[in-house]
Design a binder for these strands. Structure first.
Length: 571
RNA sequence: CGGGGCGUGGCUCAGCCUGGUAGAGCGCCUGGUUCGGGACCAGGAGGCCGGAGGUUCGAAUCCUCUCGCCCCGACCA
């Protein structure tokens, strides 16, 4: 295409509101423009990149036998009521009413719609397995849209759903997706990690996330370079650092000690001249089971943090919150700061495994300004031991003891074994070989299309702008004639342009009446992987080919540059 | 939903404290000179200062309300 005819509104100055790199650069490079909070218009450059990402996704989905659908974005409430998610989704769902006061919503994902479609049409085991997918706009009423295209209220998602007769079939469909996703993200030029994920309220047995490491992300993952272990921080397990002081091995009984005004773990530890690793942290939580609320105690080593996800999993609670000070006082007769498990019998106690086998620790005495020395878990109080601790820096891999890293990441894809959640709630069955009604087992698999674009930009940018991976760049090559009024440059540029296009190279010709500096700056900013400069050297039959990513410049004869580029782009 | 910040021309911002009727740079248009890393000169267009109400002789500026946007937190199938 000709640059002069394309709408590429690059900005010289940095937009004030953009903080993360991809947001700033998408605006500066003229890819997108905001329409409202978390709502963006995609301009031609973004549209071209997103189309290329989608093409790669389609090719890889078709390769595993998936079939593309286009589903309704406007959904009647009934389908969502059937699965229970009409209420479960809460405020995150965009809802509306039609003129007859019927409730509708805008789809935020399509498990319900797919299942509703499948149950009307799939009758026999002979029709299974099926993989159905779509690439469509999803709507979520985000409480806080942010970071440009990273968290928006309207975005494009590839979502697919597998229908199988048996768990072994689901395993296969899941594995096909896992491999397809790896190929998709590889072809998109991304560096990514696959991590074990919490399946959360999606239910189901297994789930993995595809993550790009970037500070712009919102998730933390734990990875071990030696063993390959990788998991979302929510569910990651590890071996904790050893206590900084070995426990006193003597057989001692709890002893009260006066600790005036020492409230926090750190204060108490300093006051008693013991490390925080020798303290027990006592958290009082009000958990929800069904529609009932009841208090629970969580115990952790003094320096450890509670993992909410693990605690929910360990207790089976639906949700929980910290108890209010008044609740604590009425339960314990003491204020937060002096709480402990000793003598508590009417509240279930969950103790982290890092406390199992420890001896003679410090805990609150349930009496203001007093703590207990010599508290031994399992002896001085009984508790359910479970892993309810969040992995922290310095921990090591559970089995091998190899070092772990904690990375900040952005989720670009997620695969789930759903199991029977939707087929049960919505009645999706087929007849099996014996003619008996059989539940269909499902999987669900998503890719955030814009996030692939953002991930690429987060990973590949520099002070000059974006350095897009060639496979998803809006153009593969930009031709930059230094001076278009020079007839030989002009002719050479247009000839090369036509020749590249004839060979299927996605080429942009910068035919604008601009000074060379402007053209170079713009080309770097929008991130085209290869730039061909046609200038003075043309007299010797040479052009310069600059690689955006490495900033290397190679002089190539004009007559050979097309095939030279082809060999780089299609090796 | 809590906390913070910001709304002045397309963009980045100054002016606000101490009220007197709106500015700069970039961008845009015209002409000229330029032309290998965001040129220069000259001329020009473009703003009911987010909105409403109030105080005042007079409000971008002070007060109240409201809307929008950004950031932190909560939240995030």
């Amino acid at each position: 295409m000709l640059w002069s005819k394309l709408f590429i509104p690059t900005l010289r100055e940095v937009p004030a509101d953009a903080e993360v790199a991809s947001h700033r650069l998408l605006l500066r490079a003229g890819y997108v423009r905001p329409l409202g909070a978390g709502i963006y218009n995609y301009l031609p450059l973004a549209q071209r990149s997103l189309a290329k990402i989608q093409r790669i996704i389609r090719e890889e989905m078709e390769a595993i036998g998936a079939q593309e659908f286009h589903l309704a974005a406007l959904n009647p409430a009934e389908v969502w009521q059937e699965s229970g998610r009409w209420t479960a989704m809460g405020q995150n769902m965009f809802r509306l009413r039609d003129r007859f006061q019927r409730d509708l919503c805008l789809g935020m994902t399509h498990e319900e719609v797919m299942t509703a479609l499948a149950r009307g049409e799939l009758r026999s085991y002979k029709q299974l397995p099926q993989i159905w997918y779509q690439i469509q706009t999803k709507f979520r009423d985000e409480p806080r849209p942010k970071s440009g295209l990273l968290r928006t209220r309207q975005f494009t998602m590839k979502d697919s759903y597998s229908f199988d007769l048996a768990p072994s079939g689901l395993d296969l469909s899941y594995e096909k997706h896992r491999q397809a996703y790896c190929r998709i993200f590889e072809r998109c030029g991304l560096d990514y990690v696959v991590v074990e994920a919490d399946s959360g309220s999606m239910g189901g047995s297994a789930s993995q996330e595809f993550m790009v490491a970037t500070d712009a992300g919102e998730d933390y993952v734990v990875v071990c370079r030696q063993t390959g272990y990788a998991a979302n921080l929510e569910k990651a397990v590890s071996r904790p650092t050893p206590p900084s002081l070995p426990d006193n091995d003597a057989d001692l009984s709890p002893t009260e000690v006066h600790t005036p005004n020492q409230k926090t773990i750190d204060e108490v530890a300093a006051f008693l001249n013991l490390p925080t690793t020798s303290s027990i942290k006592t958290l009082v939580l009000i958990a929800t089971f069904g529609d009932k609320h009841s208090p629970l105690i969580a115990l952790l080593r003094g320096n450890h943090q509670l993992s909410e996800t693990k605690f929910l999993a360990a207790t089976g609670a639906k949700e929980f919150r910290p108890a209010h000070p008044e609740e604590i006082r009425s339960l314990f007769g003491a204020d937060p700061g002096s709480l402990g498990p000793v003598g508590v019998t009417n509240i279930p106690i969950y103790a982290d495994k890092a406390l199992e086998g420890r001896k003679n620790l410090v805990a609150g005495a349930n009496k203001d300004d007093y703590h207990l020395l010599h508290v031994t878990p399992g002896e001085d109080f009984s508790a359910t031991f479970a892993d309810i601790r969040q992995v922290e820096a310095g921990d090591t891999e559970l089995h091998s003891g190899a070092p772990l890293e904690i990375l900040k990441t952005m989720e670009i894809g997620h695969i789930f074994k759903l199991g029977y959640k939707y087929s049960d709630s919505m009645g999706l069955t087929v007849l099996n070989e014996e003619g008996k009604e059989t539940r269909v087992i499902m999987g669900s698999y998503g890719i955030g299309v814009e996030r692939v674009l953002c991930g690429a930009i987060e990973l590949f940018h520099d002070a000059d702008g974006i350095s897009m991976p060639p496979s998803i760049a809006p153009f593969e090559v930009v031709l930059t004639p230094v001076n278009l009024t020079d007839e030989s440059q002009r002719t050479a540029a247009f000839d090369l342009y036509n020749s590249l296009r004839a060979q299927g190279v996605d080429t942009l010709l910068d035919d604008r009446d601009e000074r060379p500096g402007v053209k170079f700056k713009d080309a770097d900013l929008i991130g085209i992987p290869w730039r061909v400069t046609l200038g003075k050297k043309l007299a010797q039959g040479l052009v310069e080919v600059a690689e955006r990513r490495t900033k290397t410049v190679t002089e190539v004869p004009l007559t050979e540059v097309a095939s030279w580029l082809c060999s780089k782009l299609r090796p």
